[in-house]
Amino acid sequence: MDILQSSYCSSSESEEEEELVEPVPIVPQAVLDKYSISPNIAKYQPGSEMNFVRGRWNTFAFIEMRTSTQQRALLNKTIACVNEKARLLGVEFEPLHQSEMGSPQPLHVSLSSNVEFSTRKELDLFPKMLSIELMQKFPLHFDVQFEPALKLFDNYDKSALFLTLNVSDSVKRRYLSKLSTIIQESIDCCSLEDNTKQRQQWNFVNAHMSIGKTSKTEMTKSYLHDIHGNSDQAELGFTEKFRMLNDVIDTVHLKNSELDQFSFRCHGLKVTKERANIWVPFGNSTTV
């Protein structure tokens, strides 16, 4: 009886102790934004690809989604479900909502392609201009929603494939098109250069949120290998495999209840500036 009593007491004490643990506020967005990108070490490596251009100042605009534990669990489940089928085609997606070291990572919906400014002053001006434009022309907030089907995207040199959630058409038409126009106007206003080419590279119609990534698969490797020989054939082969993979992925559907979990209210967008992100709120909103 004594043993039982002592063990009972200790368990209740430990429960009390657990209850006493003070909750810690999550890492503020400002901290995440200040150190968004790691220092570029690759540029110090001889022979490695030049991943920066001297005298060019890059940025791009996006809507960020900071995932919750539940959302991450759902994303894990979805990616696992896709991988189960895609593995048959030699493809396996790595989740983008967490790093390879297990740290949660925010996801994003791009709102522009990579924008290059020729001076730092232009880059500094861009978020300020964007802020003014948004304040004048955009509502305080809107809800970002996604379509139930997953979609596959490739990058510009087809070295990587992305598993994505498509933004719903209504959101694209009502908000993203407008945001795209505002962003473009701000860029035009800040930059002295012609941005037509850059404007053509991104279209709000393709707005999506990448949730998984795969690189160095057999599919991308063979394309990169063949492209230097018979480029037409390489292109054809890749397109065919891409279509097959997309068909496979297309069979995975998210339930409405699951989709609702990914829906979030957007109060502003972010632009990158050097290694940091700059928060640009809509209207007078300051909520992060």
Partner: peptide, 22 residues
Amino acid sequence: LFIEAKDYESARETFDRALRVP
């Protein structure tokens, strides 16, 4: 602080950001 509160995900997030500091 996160580790003590057993919020390991936030702790990882913090470490991850810390490693990006130049």
